[in-house]
Design a protein around this nucleic acid. Structure first.
Length: 378
RNA sequence: GGAGGAGUAGCGAAGUGGCUAAACGCAGCGGACUGUAAAUCCGCCCCAUUAUUGGUUCGGUGGUUCGAAUCCACUCUCCUCCA
């Protein structure tokens, strides 16, 4: 069989959003789905058992980080990433393209690949599309990304066109280098910033190479919500209906819902776990900076409407105390809740699609969360 | 009783004539965070108003000086050592 199989189960009559599932060798996950990020083969503060409890079905790990440390050969020797980190469900690895983009200080791009300095040792490193695949093959995730080239969302047309074309060539090289197409699904990544013709061209070029799934990259890098939604509006229709679509790096509740409405199936983001560690939680009524003094004597749960372990057992006052005291249990509880919150949100979204009422759900959710839901065009 | 040392903003701690409302750290308060070099980063943090400006400070009192946390005198408190 192929490494993954996507099955479209239902299309929401109100919005056209897709309900589906993706079958992998490590189990099936429901779409639309949010994927927690575990860069260094761990979702910070969360055990695999915790991840199962918050409803995670697939998680991310990072090629770049694991390549540098501990080194993919060690992970391979351990029996692969699933075994190494004790997560026997689907895993997706990112290629390292985003690291090259975000750690720009010591990075140089050319047609062959990306040269940069190892941020841990300072040693010069070179990541080619082939090398990225080789590392990902060794790590053994169920879904892997080809190496892509990002530029600033507002780069000029010529620069963006160069990045798009190079990303396509790199995707093709990755496809050729891929050793395990029967066990690992390689996704190509659509680039093109906010240029409609480039996005469409990028998508078409990748589709012609026939990947088992497609990512949309270069978003949530500083552009507005409107810009992101516009890009999705003209990009997603270029992608085949029988393959999963993955919007990379998106994790605010509104963007998740609006992405689903535009036909996206998969999302990942560090946001819920990062803001959790920095003292902010997501609730049904919006973000709450739980470390603020206002909650010192608030003995209610983080979110009245949440039935996660953290909300059922611990108060805002207690969690705030733990955070102020820098006790690790505090960031575990906030991380636990934030992941539960987003995963539960996606569960509700799937339910809404099934019942053909995603537009209604969106309106209700936005109202409670405090988003302005006026400009909804889908 | 004698000798030496120290007293700076909530705490710790720089500063020994003007560039000092006073470095820096901690605590406190607020903000940011989107394919994780992030349990991080950025502000504020004497008082009042505030992108400004004004007022009061460096144990206390009184001096010297155009000008003092910084120099002098007296005084209070604490620490160490000797009796």
């Amino acid at each position: 069989m192929a490494a993954i199989e996507y099955k479209l189960l239902h299309v929401d009559k109100q919005t056209g959003a897709r309900l589906g599932e993706v079958k992998t060798l490590h189990g099936t996950f429901q779409t639309p789905i949010f994927m927690p990020v575990g860069t260094q083969a761990t979702v910070k503060t969360m055990s695999p058992e915790d991840l199962e409890k918050v409803g995670a079905q697939i998680i991310l790990a990072n090629n770049y980080h694991l390549w540098l440390r501990p080194g993919q050969e060690i992970v391979k020797e351990a029996g692969g990433l699933h075994k190494f980190m004790n997560w026997n469900h689907p895993i997706l690895t990112d290629s390292g393209g985003f690291q090259a983009f975000s750690l720009t200080d010591n990075v140089k791009f050319n047609e062959e690949g990306i040269s940069f300095k190892n941020h841990l040792s300072g040693k010069p490193m070179f990541l080619s599309p082939e090398k990225a695949i080789e590392v990902e093959n060794d790590l053994g995730a169920d879904i892997i990304m080809s190496l892509d080239m990002l530029t600033d969302f507002h780069s000029d047309y010529a620069e963006m066109q160069k990045a798009v074309n190079r990303t396509t060539r790199w995707a093709e090289r990755g496809l050729k280098a891929h050793q395990n197409p029967d066990t690992q699904a390689l996704f190509g990544i659509v680039q093109g910033g906010g240029y409609e013709d480039l996005r469409k061209q990028s998508a078409r070029d990748l589709v012609s190479l026939d990947f088992p799934g497609y990512s949309i990259g270069g978003l949530s890098v500083g552009e507005t919500k409107e810009e992101m939604n516009q890009v999705l509006d003209y990009t997603v229709p270029e992608l085949p209906e029988d393959k999963p679509r993955y919007l990379m790096g998106v994790g605010t509740p509104d963007a998740l819902i609006d992405g689903v409405i535009r036909g996206v199936d998969m999302f990942d983001c560090v946001l819920p776990t990062r803001i959790a560690r920095n003292g902010t939680v997501m609730t049904s009524k919006g973000r709450l900076v739980i470390k603020n003094a206002a909650y010192a004597r608030d003995f209610g749960p983080m979110d009245d409407n949440c039935d996660c372990y953290a909300c059922r057992n611990y108060s805002r006052a207690y969690i705030r105390h733990l955070l102020k005291a820098k006790e690790s249990f505090g960031i575990h509880l906030t991380s636990y809740h934030n992941l539960y919150f987003l995963l539960d949100l996606m569960k509700q979204v799937r339910e809404a699609i099934k019942n053909d009422r995603l537009a209604d759900f969106r309106a209700e959710f936005f109202e409670n969360y405090g988003y302005n839901s006026k400009h909804m065009n889908f």
